[in-house]
Simulated scan of single mutants.
Amino acid sequence: MKCKRCNNSDKDKFYKWNGSWYCRNCIRFGKVEVNQEIIPPDLTSNQIDTSYVLDYELTNEQQELMEEIDSRIHEKPMLIYAACGAGKTETTMEQISNYIREGKKVGYAISRRQVVLEIAERLSHAFKEVKVTPVCAGYTTEVDGDIIVCTMHQLHRYHQTFDLLIMDEIDAFPYEGNVILQSLAQNACRGELLLLTATPNEQLKEQVRKNEINQVTLFKRHHGHPLVVPKILCMPKVVQYLFLMYLCLKHKDKKWIIFLPTIAQVQQVFHAMKYLCKCSNITSKSEDKEQVMEDLRCGKIQVVFATTILERGITIAGVNVCIVGAEHQVYKESSLIQMVGRVGRKREYPSGYAYILASKKTKEMKQCVQTIKWMNQDHSNV
């Protein structure tokens, strides 16, 4: 037996009901009988002679990357390894435009709901004549569009649908190591696959070494300024909280995302600091994430205290970052790089502050700094 939706062939993960065998591996997406054909959804395909509009001109490095993608995309899956804020999304727009002109279906999948909404907004801004549809929790009434931006979980709706499927932040939870989501993605793509990340894991690196996927790289940000290298400050936990107070009081004209390792710590620090500055908090339990982020963008609040839920895909002009308790096991090299990568993304704010606070310096912190410094080197002759 083999599930045609998630590729499960483990007999212990099937069950028999009313004379039919069903897959328990992916039952959260609805029951699928073993012998049942998965029918692709009946979606529209429109040929649209479209182009995209950006708020800035692409750099020579971005142009060269796009040309390389165009020349090699039909060979095998392609990994775009690009630094945070280097313009990964923008480098896919030429391909998106090409596929839409041919009347082909484009999908853009990413792990987190918050980032789905932001990417959908960016693509809508770039492609004025094209219907961009976000599909995630709270946005499932409409599931068709010229470009469908969805969470990884929502790919179960799109069996054999996408002629171009862009998978962003593929090293992130919950996609990394999740064979069900990986199978859904594999089955959703009937054409070409683009993989995007700023922090490739060992599995991806091994696939590149074995020549199973192609890789292109982009480490220079579009504004030409180097990535912000974080300052690691080792101090007792109590002093770390005093340092937070100092930051918020000294830099009242600046925006901050303060990362803490647990929901309980986020809430404790928020309740202690709300009397000193205009602030809010975001965790996986927050129901007003979009409103809080909009308040930070427009300056209604100065500080957002958050778990790693905001480590990826978030762009706030002029934001600074402080990571508290960075020796905690939740912080890997990749998550530290991603959090620091929120700083300096915009042309009008190409730099800023990035602090890593910890009671002791860990291997992950050292690797984070080393990797960012390596990205800042000249790779033109590599």
Score class of each variant (00 low, 15 high):
E90P: 00
I80K: 03
P77K: 08
R101V: 00
H159C: 08
H125D: 15
V130T: 03
G85T: 09
V115D: 15
H153A: 11
E142A: 13
N98K: 15
E118G: 02
L123C: 06
G103Q: 10
G103D: 06
P77E: 14
Q160T: 05
L79T: 13
G138S: 10
A126L: 02
M93E: 02
T140G: 08
V135E: 06
D163W: 03
D146V: 00
D146S: 00
V132D: 10
K105L: 04
Q114C: 10
R101S: 05
I147P: 05
C84A: 14
E118D: 12
V135T: 07
K88L: 13
V115F: 11
H74K: 15
K131P: 02
K128R: 12
S97Y: 00
E75P: 14
K131R: 12
L164A: 10
M93C: 03
R157H: 12
V149F: 05
M93P: 00
Y158G: 06
V115C: 08
T133M: 09
P134F: 07
L123V: 03
E75F: 15
I148Y: 02
H153L: 04
F162V: 07
V149D: 09
K104S: 08
Y158I: 12
K88D: 09
A126H: 01
V149R: 09
F162C: 05
D163R: 04
M93R: 00
K104Q: 13
C84N: 11
R112I: 14
Q154E: 11
G145F: 02
E121R: 07
K128C: 04
A120L: 02
V115I: 12
K76Q: 15
K76M: 15
H74Y: 14
T92L: 04
S111E: 14
V116W: 10
M78I: 13
T89A: 04
V135K: 08
T151A: 06
V106H: 02
A120S: 14
E129C: 03
I119G: 04
E129G: 04
G85E: 14
G138K: 12
L123F: 03
H125R: 14
R157W: 06
G107D: 05
E129T: 06
C84T: 13
Q154I: 03
D144C: 07
N98I: 14
A86M: 10
V115M: 08
G145R: 07
Q154Y: 08
A82M: 11
I147T: 05
L164C: 09
K131V: 03
T141C: 07
L123W: 04
H153Q: 15
I147F: 07
K128G: 01
C84F: 07
L117Y: 10
K104N: 07
I119Y: 10
A86G: 08
H74C: 12
G107M: 08
N98L: 11
H74W: 14
I148R: 01
L79H: 12
G87E: 13
K105S: 03
Y81H: 13
R113A: 04
S124H: 04
Y99W: 08
T133Q: 13
E102F: 02
I147R: 00
H74G: 10
E129K: 11
T89C: 04
I119K: 10
L165R: 02
H159N: 10
V106N: 02
G103M: 02
